[in-house]
């Protein structure tokens, strides 16, 4: 025996009933810190049911892989790129010849000046 009502409207798509918000215990369960057995109230169980469905859908997405052609497309696109040399670390600063000559002259001049002053 069934209690079907032939006149009742048949929904053409699933409808959502207002689900209670996730309590800290539900959040802890979703974080994997609590077992579902610890969800004591009917509201918590109802919220958990919604999240079980959401997680199931998320798990489907988790199984997605990069389309095969994408990996080869990336590798092929590297062809014309410049190779990246591993540059040796720069130690200190580079001394160019003119700077070295001028620096030498300045040092000599200062030395001569100091020497001249000491002699006097």
């Amino acid at each position: 025996m069934t209690d079907e009502k032939p006149d009742a409207p048949v929904p053409d798509k699933p409808t959502y009933r207002k689900t209670p918000p996730a309590t800290p215990m539900v959040q802890a369960w979703l974080d994997g810190e609590e077992s579902r057995d610890h969800l004591a109230t009917a509201d918590e169980q109802e919220t958990a049911e919604l999240w079980t469905r959401i997680n199931s859908e998320a798990a489907q997405l988790r199984r997605r892989h990069t389309p095969i052609h994408v990996q080869s497309r990336i590798l092929n696109s590297l062809t014309d790129l410049p190779a990246v040399p591993d540059e040796p670390p720069q130690t200190g600063f580079k001394l160019s010849t003119p700077v070295a000559v001028i620096g030498g002259i300045v040092i000599l001049a200062v030395g001569a000046l100091l020497g001249f002053m000491l002699v006097r």
Binding site: L78, L81, D86
Partner: peptide, 17 residues
Amino acid sequence: AEDILQASFIKAYQHLS
């Protein structure tokens, strides 16, 4: 997602050092 992946790996290659 594919475009971002490609651009990101190219950038990674160029700046690998």
